[in-house]
Nucleic acid binder design. Structure first.
Length: 501
RNA sequence: UCCCCGAUAGCUCAAUUGGCAGAGCGGGCGGCUGUUAACCGCCAGGUCGUAGGUUCGAGCCCUACUCGGGGAGCCA
């Protein structure tokens, strides 16, 4: 709006009169003094309205203004440590643009279901706002990294004609009477553009109809996939670690405040620098079945049990207090703590239940299976930096992955596991570039070569060693921000059973 | 698809284990010139997810269903 100043610019306008335009985030009053917290998309600002400094009628209106009313406020900027953001506005005038009443999202806690079904409003709240800013940085860093390193953006189609590897996990759409599928990956298509430009990437939404109901899954998510001609596995790993480190660096640079607000582990993000740990699948299996892992899990279980006992003790203590005669405010504080404790209790109980299952799965792990979610979690928990796991068994992996010529039982692929138990954020591989071997893998997997004719064709006309990987944007954001569920990391999440709005 | 948990005021949750349905926040009114999820006083607000059953009596016990959460498999 003409003549208005963004809250992010207040620091450059100290002692000057400005007008800000925004929404009322929260208001408090103390007699003849009002504290209005205004948000405008760039930040928050506390406006102080003194009775006498503005007209009585306006003061009365502002005093009863509902949360999320839109308005402009004019006043003089001053620095004050007591204010959010460090600056505040001594109001001299205000204009209410559109009053709001009974805003559903109050300054108290709400449940996920309620917030998600009010997602159109929830996005105005502080946590989604911080995550949204970080998502913007991550996406910008993704594009910046590839654009600055000689990659060409080549978009893959969203509607695919090929059924791909796993028809069950595809969304089918009716395309003028014949079936088509929403893309699961752009990889096959950009292998062909890589043969034109050398280094390419695609970045867009991806759709998976997997029946996965976990905190790490969305049915619609964003994935960036680079594909490079003339690259080998060590080259791919180097590319991936530089890429992920760059994203982490940019988020640290641009979003320290947001990370702090979210309570993210900033020291852990600072550790995300090359080189990352490198394990082969075989080494990972040896670790999983080792005494070291058994001890690690035992210790973890002991820790969980101790946590559980402490929580139980505290709950009993508080419940005892609640029965006795105590001050009203203490009672309320206790009640709030009890709610937190009970949810922590439920969480640690689940961990205790899962620990022996995971321990058994790890101990009984036999070479040849794909690593399960819990196995990845264990490996990831044992490291403080991202870990590459490479060279998985051929039988557990997709047909397009290149067979390791020095060990035909494995393929030249890798997963990148984020540390501290977060798990997989990247999957990638060198692609099979030999015409006959690719054909053989396709038939071995029970697929029809005629469905992949153009893809096989790429191996006919100047085939070269090449490869790439896919990085999940929401998983990356969840990992960096410490958000436990990736549905918070996309504005409008689509999950297996639930599409809120 | 399988296993576990839950559903009480607009929201977040209590209800001494079967005996009169409560608190905070939010809303309304009033008080307070430096509040930080402000505080203090008063007021309004309920078909206890749905259907059935047990019982003198059910928010609580039993059965089925609906919806939601967490986890497993699979994956980014």
């Amino acid at each position: 709006m003409k003549g208005t100043t963004y809250i992010s610019e207040l620091k450059n306008n100290v002692s000057k009169p400005v007008t800000i335009a925004g929404w009322l985030y929260n208001s408090r009053s103390s007699g003849k003094l009002l504290f209005l917290i205004i948000r405008d998309g760039t930040g928050m600002c506390q406006c102080i309205v003194e009775k006498g400094k503005v007209g009585d009628e306006l003061f009365g209106k502002l005093e009863h203004l509902g949360q999320e009313s839109s308005l402009t406020i004019s006043g003089v900027v001053r620095a004050d440590e007591r204010s959010v953001g460090g600056y505040e506005l001594a109001a001299t005038d205000a204009k209410i643009i559109s009053p709001s009443s009974d805003y559903p999202i109050t300054p108290k806690e709400h449940g996920t279901d309620f917030l998600m079904s009010h997602r159109h409003l929830h996005l105005r709240s502080q946590r989604p706002w911080c995550i949204g800013k970080i998502r913007h940085t991550v996406v910008d860093a993704v594009r910046r990294f590839f654009n600055d390193n000689g990659f060409i953006l080549t978009d893959a189609p969203i509607l695919m004609s090929m059924a791909g590897e796993d028809q069950q996990s595809l969304f089918e759409v009716d395309y003028f009477g014949r079936p088509m599928y929403l893309t699961q990956t752009g990889q096959l298509h950009i292998e062909s553009t890589a043969m034109s430009f050398g280094k390419v990437y695609c970045f867009g939404p991806t759709f998976r109809a997997e029946k996965s109901k976990t905190r790490r899954h969305l049915t619609e998510f964003w994935m960036v996939e680079p594909e490079v001609a003339f690259i080998d596995l060590p080259g791919l790993l180097e590319l991936a670690e530089n890429f992920v480190s760059y994203i982490a660096k940019r988020v640290l640079e641009d979003n320290t405040k947001e990370l702090q607000t979210l309570g993210a582990n900033i020291d852990a993000i600072k550790k995300i620098v090359p080189p990352f740990y490198r394990l082969t699948y075989t080494e990972a299996v040896n670790i999983l079945t080792s005494d070291k892992t058994r001890k690690f899990l035992d210790e973890q279980l002991a820790q969980f049990n101790e946590q559980k006992n402490n929580i139980e003790k505290r709950i009993a203590e508080l419940e005892e207090q609640q029965k006795g005669k105590i001050k009203e405010w203490q009672k309320e504080k206790n009640a709030a703590e009890l709610i937190d404790l009970r949810s922590e209790f439920a969480e640690v109980t689940t961990k205790i239940e899962n620990n022996p299952k995971h321990a058994r799965l790890a101990a009984e792990f036999r070479w040849g299976k794909d690593l399960g979610g819990s196995d990845e979690t264990i490996i990831s928990q044992m490291h403080d930096k991202p870990v590459f796991v490479t060279h998985y068994p051929k039988d557990a992996k997709a047909f397009y992955m290149k067979t390791d010529r020095s060990n035909p039982k494995v393929v030249e692929n890798f997963d990148l596991l984020a540390p501290e138990g977060f798990g997989e954020i990247i999957g990638g591989s060198v692609r099979e570039d030999d015409y006959n071997m690719l054909l053989q893998r396709i038939t071995e997997d029970g697929l029809k070569p005629e469905n992949y004719q153009w893809y096989i064709d790429l191996r006919k006309y100047g085939s070269v060693p090449h490869g790439g990987f896919g990085l999940g944007i929401e998983r990356t954001i969840a990992w960096l921000t410490g958000e436990r569920h990736i549905r918070q990391c996309i504005p409008f999440p689509r999950m297996m059973d639930t599409v809120y709005i």
